[in-house]
Amino acid sequence: MPETKWRALDHCDNHNKHDADVDQENVQKQVTKQISNEWIIVRDSEDVEVTTTDTQVALSLQLGIQAAIVAVISITIGDNEQGNNVAQDLKQFMKTKQSNKQKTIIEGSKHVKVKTTDTDIAVNIQALLQILVAIVAKLDVL
């Protein structure tokens, strides 16, 4: 006799409780931000807690640091060809991998906590900050 597959929501079926909570089989969540594409699929599960990196915060931090670098260059070297060339060269290091793809599937589970992190973003931001700090240190600002 084939063994019946355990399903987290079996007890809900037994009680004929077909409310919204039971419809998790089709629950899919896609978090798509400008620099991240993350899929978290929760299927046939209950009590699942998901935490992900806030890529929107990361993006605004990234833009903030880039703007600061350009501003410092513009003030010290000038908004001229030389300043533009320096900014252009620095941008070569600032080019970051703009894509993060990860897929998390939680199936047939209960009481699960999931944390995903986009380490690329965290490292990129730290590197950008290092460039800014190096520039201002050279200019004796710090």
Binding site: T51, T52, A58, L61, I65, A122, I125, V133
Partner: peptide, 13 residues
């Protein structure tokens, strides 16, 4: 910016 980055890195799971 430093403190914002530190907060972000620390809070990232």
């Amino acid at each position: 910016l430093k403190s914002q980055v530190e907060t972000f890195v620390k809070e990232s799971p």
